[in-house]
Amino acid sequence: MSSRGTSPPESGDDGSAADPQPLVCDRCGTSAGTLADDGPPLTWTHSVENGARRYFCETCSRENLRSIEGRLDSDWW
Protein backbone atom coordinates (compact mmCIF):
# COMPACT_ATOMS: atom_id res chain seq x y z
CA MET A 1 0.00 0.00 0.00
CA SER A 2 1.13 3.51 -0.73
CA SER A 3 1.13 6.17 1.98
CA ARG A 4 1.07 8.99 -0.53
CA GLY A 5 -0.84 12.00 0.80
CA THR A 6 -1.03 10.71 4.36
CA SER A 7 2.36 11.86 5.64
CA PRO A 8 2.81 15.30 7.21
CA PRO A 9 4.26 18.08 5.06
CA GLU A 10 8.06 18.04 5.01
CA SER A 11 8.48 21.82 5.06
CA GLY A 12 7.13 22.11 8.60
CA ASP A 13 4.00 23.85 7.37
CA ASP A 14 1.04 22.48 9.28
CA GLY A 15 -1.42 23.71 6.65
CA SER A 16 -2.95 26.30 8.95
CA ALA A 17 -4.02 29.70 7.70
CA ALA A 18 -1.73 32.73 7.82
CA ASP A 19 -1.59 34.94 10.87
CA PRO A 20 -5.00 36.43 11.72
CA GLN A 21 -5.55 39.83 10.14
CA PRO A 22 -7.34 42.77 11.77
CA LEU A 23 -10.83 43.36 10.44
CA VAL A 24 -11.18 46.62 8.48
CA CYS A 25 -14.04 48.20 6.56
CA ASP A 26 -13.75 47.38 2.85
CA ARG A 27 -15.07 50.82 1.97
CA CYS A 28 -13.29 53.34 4.23
CA GLY A 29 -10.60 51.27 5.98
CA THR A 30 -11.86 51.83 9.54
CA SER A 31 -10.55 49.18 11.91
CA ALA A 32 -13.09 47.10 13.82
CA GLY A 33 -10.64 46.56 16.67
CA THR A 34 -11.08 42.78 16.26
CA LEU A 35 -9.46 40.08 14.21
CA ALA A 36 -11.11 38.83 11.02
CA ASP A 37 -11.36 35.33 12.56
CA ASP A 38 -13.42 36.74 15.46
CA GLY A 39 -15.99 38.25 13.12
CA PRO A 40 -17.28 41.81 12.86
CA PRO A 41 -18.91 43.85 15.65
CA LEU A 42 -22.71 43.56 15.76
CA THR A 43 -23.15 46.99 14.15
CA TRP A 44 -21.15 46.04 11.03
CA THR A 45 -22.59 44.40 7.92
CA HIS A 46 -21.06 41.97 5.48
CA SER A 47 -21.76 40.76 1.99
CA VAL A 48 -20.40 38.19 -0.40
CA GLU A 49 -19.49 39.72 -3.74
CA ASN A 50 -18.01 37.55 -6.50
CA GLY A 51 -17.22 34.88 -3.92
CA ALA A 52 -15.32 37.24 -1.59
CA ARG A 53 -16.64 38.22 1.83
CA ARG A 54 -16.62 41.99 2.40
CA TYR A 55 -17.21 43.84 5.68
CA PHE A 56 -18.54 47.38 6.16
CA CYS A 57 -18.43 49.57 9.26
CA GLU A 58 -21.53 51.05 10.86
CA THR A 59 -21.03 54.46 9.21
CA CYS A 60 -20.59 53.09 5.69
CA SER A 61 -23.50 50.70 6.22
CA ARG A 62 -25.82 53.53 7.28
CA GLU A 63 -24.73 55.84 4.47
CA ASN A 64 -25.34 53.15 1.84
CA LEU A 65 -28.33 51.35 3.30
CA ARG A 66 -30.52 51.67 0.20
CA SER A 67 -27.81 50.28 -2.04
CA ILE A 68 -27.19 47.41 0.36
CA GLU A 69 -30.90 46.58 0.52
CA GLY A 70 -31.04 46.77 -3.28
CA ARG A 71 -28.24 44.18 -3.35
CA LEU A 72 -25.96 46.39 -5.42
CA ASP A 73 -22.28 45.44 -5.32
CA SER A 74 -20.26 47.89 -3.26
CA ASP A 75 -18.45 48.98 -6.43
CA TRP A 76 -21.69 50.75 -7.42
CA TRP A 77 -21.96 52.79 -4.21
Results as ranks from 00 to 15, higher is better:
Arg53Cys: 07
Asn64Leu: 01
Phe56Trp: 08
Arg62Ala: 02
Glu69Leu: 12
Asp38Val: 11
Arg54Phe: 07
Trp44Phe: 06
Val48Ala: 08
Pro41Arg: 01
Arg71Gly: 05
Thr34Ala: 09
Gly33Glu: 05
Cys28Glu: 01
Asn50Tyr: 04
Trp76Met: 06
Ser47Gln: 14
Glu49Met: 03
Leu42Thr: 15
Leu42Glu: 13
Arg54Ile: 04
Cys60Thr: 06
Val48Lys: 06
Arg53Asp: 13
Cys60Ser: 02
Thr34Arg: 12
Phe56Met: 07
Ser11Ile: 08
Asp19Thr: 15
Cys28Ser: 00
Asp75Glu: 11
Leu23Pro: 04
Gly70Glu: 15
Cys28Gln: 00
Gly51His: 04
Glu63Gly: 03
Cys25Thr: 02
Asp14Ile: 12
Pro40Ser: 11
Gly39Leu: 09
Thr30Phe: 02
Leu35Lys: 09
Asn50Cys: 08
Ser7Lys: 15
Glu69Phe: 12
Arg66Lys: 14
Arg4His: 10
Asp19Met: 15
Thr43Gln: 09
Thr30Arg: 02
Gly70Pro: 03
Asp75Phe: 05
Ser16Cys: 12
Met1Asp: 12
Asp75Thr: 07
Gly29Phe: 01
Glu69Ser: 15
Arg71Thr: 08
Val48Ile: 14
His46Met: 07
Glu63Leu: 14
Pro8Ser: 13
Pro40Asp: 09
Gly39Ser: 11
Asn50Gly: 10
Gly29Asn: 01
Asp14His: 06
Gly12Gln: 10
Leu35Met: 11
Pro41Thr: 10
Asp14Glu: 10
Thr45Glu: 05
Asp26Phe: 02
Tyr55Thr: 14
Cys28Met: 00
Cys28Asp: 00
Glu69Ala: 09
Gly5Ser: 09
Cys28Leu: 00
Trp44Thr: 05
Arg66Tyr: 13
Cys25Ile: 00
Gly51Lys: 07
Asp26Asn: 04
Gly15Thr: 02
Glu63Val: 06
Arg62Trp: 00
Val48Cys: 01
Thr34Gln: 07
Cys25Tyr: 02
Glu10Gly: 11
Ser67Glu: 13
Ser11Gln: 07
Ser61Thr: 14
Arg71Cys: 07
Trp76Asp: 02
Asp26Arg: 08
Ala18Glu: 11
Ala36Trp: 15
Pro9Thr: 11
Leu35Trp: 15
Ala18Trp: 11
Asp14Phe: 10
Cys28Ala: 00
